[in-house]
Amino acid sequence: MALMAMNDVTIAFEGTVAVDRVSFEVNPGDYLVIVGENGSGKSTLIRAMLGLVRPRSGRIAYGDGLVKNRIGYLPQQTAAQRDFPASVEEVVLSGCVNRMGTRCFYNKSDRQKAEANMALLDVLKYRKKSFRTLSGGQQQRTLLARALCATDAMLLLDEPVTGLDPAAAAELYDVIRDLNRKHGVAVVMVSHDLGGAMRDANKVLVMNRGMDFFGGVQDYRTKFAEGAVTARG
């Protein structure tokens, strides 16, 4: 059974269709890359996957242990976060908010989960350090640890390497691959960086308001040979 299945989903705002009849599914262990130009409906699709917008038609089904609000989301960073006074530990712990239910405070298992994820992403040594003093790569790893606190099954990454230098980007891709391969977390990544993102992926979804392509990476490579991609602009 799929973690998440989109069935013929159409989303529209104020009369304009942003996402047109998209169907795909994410299975446990998948590494899906969503590509597409600006305005192709990628961000709307993300918001729909997170349950923040309602599709006009079609169905989004969650299954296999995944429920809405239990997706580990890594949003793009905002300007306000650059000078936000918060320690790494506080940031990672805040990923446990969706496990709290009606509780008001974090409990022991929340703290243990945060600590385990900090260790997993190698930011435990910075736990008392301020988030704003970390390098770009360290910040993304911290936010990944927070995302892992929010989920057991699926990560949703929105342009995770934007603003990172090539070395830090490569390192982050390695971290994501390890999470996918060794820890069995399904990964859905929206990216502009086709080469880097595609290296470890097993599925590709090309968005162009509608769905241009959905399938395995090999099929994608044969269908859109280098020249064809450039020709499409």
Binding site: T78, V91, N98
Partner: peptide, 10 residues
């Protein structure tokens, strides 16, 4: 700290 993330987690 992060409104989009908070919204996404319900």
């Amino acid at each position: 700290f992060d409104e989009p993330f908070a919204r996404a987690t319900g």
